[in-house]
Amino acid sequence: MTTTQTAMEGVAGKALPVVVGKSDTKPTWCPGCGDYGVVAAVERALKTLAIPSHEVFIVSGIGCSSNLPHFLSSYGFHSIHGRALPVASGAKLANHALTVIATGGDGDGYGIGGGHFIHSMRRNLDITYIVMNNEIYGLTTGQASPTSEMGHKTKSTPLGVIERPINPIALALAAGATYVSRGFSGDVKHLGDLIANGIKHRGFSLVDVLSPCVTYNKINTFDYFRQRLYKLEGSAHDPSNLVSAFEKAQEWGPKIPIGLFYQTDRPTYEELEPALRNGPLVQQPGGLRGKEHLLDEFV
């Protein structure tokens, strides 16, 4: 931190919590929404890691779940539908000292933002991406989402969905994500640990969260998941084994695994980017003063 910023401490006239807590804005989600568990888990993770609130930047897209940044006391950016990851990526490249978290829903991340999802994973910027996956479009009052199961009757599919749902875990493994996990918003402690470990992980972390929509998805409910979920941590699965991770990613039925599917160590994009070798871009000077030699190439 520069001396200017140290001098600015507290001058905004309102004491901010040192670490991220709840903001003054109360969540506007439906009573019982799974996303309450997610915001609680994010808060819990950030408190565990004790990251100063001004160094946390949470970027979201559009949808019910994308309101999340408003409910926490960090810096935030509530962007447009599907674009949380590119906005987060630009911010991370501009200031890689920040803890950058991207959040959104399954429609936002796996539907309209699907292209960014794949490329962000192979890029391996040190960003944690939390997808609140409720297998439905909630804010638009209940249409099929990219993760809605075959046969699911929604307002847009009154006879049932006739295309296979995306498998975000398998997709993330194939795209090269270096931390691939799935949590459940009904288990805040476990989810908080997954998020904290994702933030600690150096590289792109996916935390796909089964986060039931209590209003528009009457199939994938809290009870539905409680009957099926088991934790990978207690199983024989080795999260360093990509083949085993792919196998676990295919499990969806009577038994659904949550926990860490895969983690590996690979250089991050910001480590490989030469322009960042002297530290965060925001700290570097710009401009061309004294660089008149650049004109020589045009002679």
Partner: peptide, 28 residues
């Protein structure tokens, strides 16, 4: 020159990355 040049996956990503970078404090 210490400039990050990011070839994005599409123009949607390109402009949103630039907005993210500008918001974070660099000219983009």
């Amino acid at each position: 020159l210490g400039i990050v040049v990011k070839q994005a996956e599409d123009e949607l990503a390109a402009i949103n990355m630039a907005i993210g970078a500008s918001h974070a404090g660099v000219r983009a």
